[in-house]
Amino acid sequence: MTSRVPPGLARLNSAGDQAARTLLREVCAAGPWAAAVAAARPYADAARLYAAADAALAALDDAGLREAMAGHPPIGRPRPGDPASAREQRGMADAPEALRAEVLELTLAYQERFGHVFLICATGLGAEQLRDALRERIGNAPEEERRIARRELGKINRIRLTRLVEGGGEADAEREGARP
């Protein structure tokens, strides 16, 4: 029995080096991560891609982790015109104004304390859950927070890689008339 390579994985495998890195930087903004994942192509299946992505994430130094986090907009302020950002932060979209203001205040305090955006896999989380996570994590030691941020980045990368592998990129969704 021959397994079919999903369309997005086939596209990633066949892309030139620069095009592959560009596709991968839509998943994770860290250049070293994208370069490592692109260099390990071709992937026979999604599991091998995910394993390479996890290894590349684990290998990121502090500068690479900062670069990856800088590619994410703050919670409650998705990047304009970015359907992935809006989709991932959907839980904040209908939050009451008072809750939105509290989340903004907490995210600014978090950024002041840690020097980077609050990174959480927001997919499926409501505004109260995001606020509660901010409240909980703002008291962490910087080393603990970097460990948690790396873990959350891994979750985000996996969701985005899955969309890429399945051919569910933004351009595909727009062509199909799908909503993010």
Rank of each mutant, 00 (worst) to 15 (best):
V103A: 01
T22C: 14
A34K: 07
E88R: 01
G64K: 11
A70S: 14
G91A: 01
A52I: 05
L60K: 02
E97F: 04
A59E: 11
A53G: 10
N13D: 09
P32V: 10
A56M: 06
V117W: 03
T22R: 15
E26W: 12
A53K: 01
L57V: 05
A56V: 10
A15F: 07
L65K: 09
R25W: 02
L104M: 13
Q89W: 02
A109E: 10
D61K: 01
A34M: 08
L108I: 12
R100G: 04
E105F: 00
A95N: 01
F118K: 02
Q18N: 14
P78G: 08
L104N: 11
A30C: 03
L104K: 15
R79S: 12
D54P: 06
D45L: 07
C28I: 11
H116S: 01
G81S: 07
A10W: 00
G71M: 05
Q111L: 00
D82V: 04
R100Y: 03
C28G: 01
A47Q: 10
E97N: 01
P73N: 12
P32T: 09
R100N: 08
A44D: 14
P42Q: 11
L65R: 08
A95Q: 03
L104H: 15
R66D: 15
G31Q: 15
A47L: 06
G71Y: 08
D61L: 05
P83Q: 12
P74H: 07
F118N: 01
G8N: 05
L108N: 13
G16Q: 10
L23Y: 09
A40E: 12
P96Y: 03
R77Y: 03
A51K: 09
R79Y: 09
Q89Y: 00
L57S: 06
L24K: 08
L104P: 07
A52H: 09
I75K: 04
R11D: 15
A51C: 05
V37Y: 06
L104C: 10
E67V: 00
F114S: 07
A19S: 13
F118H: 09
E112C: 09
A63M: 11
E112A: 15
P42A: 11
R11Y: 11
L23G: 12
A56R: 09
A15S: 15
P7V: 07
D17L: 13
L106V: 02
A20W: 07
W33E: 06
A53E: 05
A86K: 07
L9H: 08
A109P: 00
L106A: 12
A53Q: 07
P80I: 09
L119H: 09
L104F: 15
P96T: 05
G64M: 10
R41Y: 01
G8D: 03
H72P: 11
N13H: 03
E88V: 06
G31S: 14
G81R: 12
A46K: 03
Y110E: 04
L24W: 03
D94Y: 06
V117Y: 05
L12I: 10
A55L: 13
R87T: 05
A51V: 02
A10P: 02
P83S: 10
C28P: 04
N13I: 12
G91C: 08
A40Q: 14
G91N: 00
A84G: 15
A10H: 10
A56E: 05
A36C: 06
A58M: 11
R41S: 05
D82E: 02
R90S: 08
